[in-house]
Write a protein that binds this DNA or RNA. Structure first.
Length: 299
DNA sequence: GAACCGTGGTT
DNA sequence: TAACCAAGGTT
């Protein structure tokens, strides 16, 4: 009889310890705040684009209270072109709450974390696990894909089923808190660099021996696909163009400058208005526009 | 649950 | 090259 296959943990953890990317927010000296900032920035944004922004951000605002004290426009400029700039506003607001209501200490409790703006199920658990070494399932798109393949033998994860997804990952976690936390990071790493969406590198996979998808002959995914999002011509694109002008402008700009970015006036004005509502843009008393809110201080 | 919210690299 | 994809959250 062949020797038994080691559990997933015993295969993936040694691989992770030896191969993990040296990302700045994973270093021992990184604070929980640094971890939380990285998780905000990494929402739907690739690691390579986050790295330089994160490094500058942490040098400028090493504490929640230091970010909370910064003007909104400065925060939005530092966010740069990471995309989804409302994340920057939510992080700014979360920093204010942490500074004023939590003694400038990032919470470690998942429920408290989830109550912060911009912190959902994934981010709350990621902070608890990676910043505080807690044993809690961390479910992102990478982990869902790894579980779909390694555990369920399917080519890809189907639609999100929040409760079931959490239970699936929970079942994989070893009892020890710190080890479980490390496995959570390892599963994400595996999904990010080996068990990828398009061209999985199964020949490099430490879990190949125990992978249900591999055993099944790597059948193609047959479940429902979500329709592609689309971008060209959407409000999202127009808002991005407007915001880009405001971000790069050294001073408040006249409306005619903004009018130049998009020919459809109705859509343009609607988008500009939505940016004002979101707090991403501001109209000054003289009618010009600027990024975020200019602090009313001075005088 | 579906739609919306940016940006840029990869295939 | 048009799609696809990247450590999601909110409404």
């Amino acid at each position: 009889m062949a020797p038994p296959v080691p559990p997933l943990t015993d295969l993936v953890l040694p691989w992770f310890d030896a191969q993990a990317r040296d990302l700045p927010w994973r270093r021992a000296e990184t604070t929980p705040w640094g971890v939380m900032v990285s998780e905000f920035m990494l929402q739907q944004t690739p690691v390579a684009r986050v790295e330089p922004v994160w490094t500058r951000w942490m040098a400028e605002w090493p504490l929640p209270s230091s970010l909370a004290a910064a003007p909104r426009a400065e925060v939005l400029r530092a966010w740069g072109k990471l995309g989804y700039p409302r994340r920057a506003l939510r992080l700014h607001e979360a920093a204010r709450v942490i500074a004023t209501e939590h003694d400038d200490v990032v919470p470690s409790d998942v429920d408290v974390l989830e109550s912060l703006p911009g912190v959902g199920s994934y981010t709350a658990r990621a902070v608890a696990a990676f910043a505080y070494r807690r044993r809690c399932p961390v479910v992102d798109t990478n982990v869902r894909r790894v579980v779909a393949r390694a555990v369920h033998g399917r080519g890809d994860a189907g639609p999100v089923r929040a409760r079931a997804d959490l239970a699936d990952v929970e079942a994989l976690l070893p009892a020890d808190e710190a080890t479980a936390a490390r496995l959570s990071a390892a599963l994400m790493e595996l999904g990010a660099v080996v068990c990828t969406a398009r061209n999985p590198r199964c020949e490099l996979c430490p879990a190949r021996r125990t992978c249900a998808w591999q055993a099944a002959g790597r059948p193609a995914y047959t479940g429902p696909r979500r329709p592609p999002q689309g971008y060209a011509g959407t409000d999202r694109q127009v808002r991005g163009k407007l915001l880009d002008v405001l971000r790069e402008a050294p001073a408040p700009v006249e409306k005619v400058v903004l009018d130049a970015v998009w020919s459809n006036a109705a859509q343009r004005d609607r988008c500009l208005d939505s940016l004002l509502v979101d707090g991403l843009a501001e109209q000054l008393a003289d009618g010009r526009f600027s990024l975020g809110c200019t602090p009313v201080s001075g005088e």
